[in-house]
Computed example of a mutant assay.
Amino acid sequence: MNFGFSPVGLLFLLMLFVPNIIWSKNQPKDYEQYSKSENRLLLAFERIGEVLVTVLSLFCGVGFNFSFLLILGFFFLIIYELAWLKYFRSDRTMKDMLASFLIIPVPIASLPVLAFLILGIVSGNILLIASSIILAIGHIGIHLDHRRNL
């Protein structure tokens, strides 16, 4: 397990945070009714996973060593950005936010989790891998619950 500042981790986080910052000003019209009924356990997993993934990805020690897995992680984040672009160009409803993209279910939740899981694998950082799994349980679980409630 390598520790040290990771420029790749920082880039992954920027690719994650920029659309989320834009989303905060462009939330789905009916978001509040869904957010009020979120499962508390899934929400706890999501919040814990978010903090751990953010911190650990910055210090996972991965530089720009273009392995197949790292390129795959970037690919997932590029698809993630495209899914956000599709959402921002839509009517911005919950249905739009939770819609599949390129056959990927809940891409706005699943793709970044996969990217950070890959970052953990590339860095050999078991803590980042575990944190990504914790985040996946909460974040993807919440989005799937919202999708079921549509």
Rank of each mutant, 00 (worst) to 15 (best):
A109P: 02
F116E: 00
L70W: 08
S57E: 04
G63S: 13
M97T: 00
C60K: 03
S6L: 01
G9T: 03
I79W: 13
Y87D: 03
A130S: 14
D145T: 13
I121Q: 00
S100W: 12
I21A: 13
R89G: 12
G141L: 08
I126W: 00
F64R: 01
I129Y: 03
E38V: 15
L41F: 14
S6V: 01
Y87K: 01
L117M: 07
Y31T: 10
R47L: 11
C60H: 05
Y87W: 01
P28Y: 00
E32L: 13
R147I: 05
N39I: 10
L14C: 12
V62A: 00
L42W: 02
G124V: 07
S131F: 04
V51Y: 09
K95V: 06
S57D: 05
L16F: 11
S24H: 06
V53H: 05
F75K: 03
S90M: 14
F64Y: 13
V122P: 00
E81A: 15
G9K: 00
V106F: 11
R147W: 10
G141A: 08
S6H: 00
Y87F: 09
K25N: 15
S24Q: 08
G73A: 10
F68R: 15
I103F: 15
F5P: 01
Y80I: 03
F5H: 12
K25A: 13
L41I: 13
P28S: 07
I78C: 11
L144P: 02
P7F: 07
V8Y: 01
S110G: 08
T93Q: 06
Q33Y: 07
K86R: 11
I21P: 12
L56V: 11
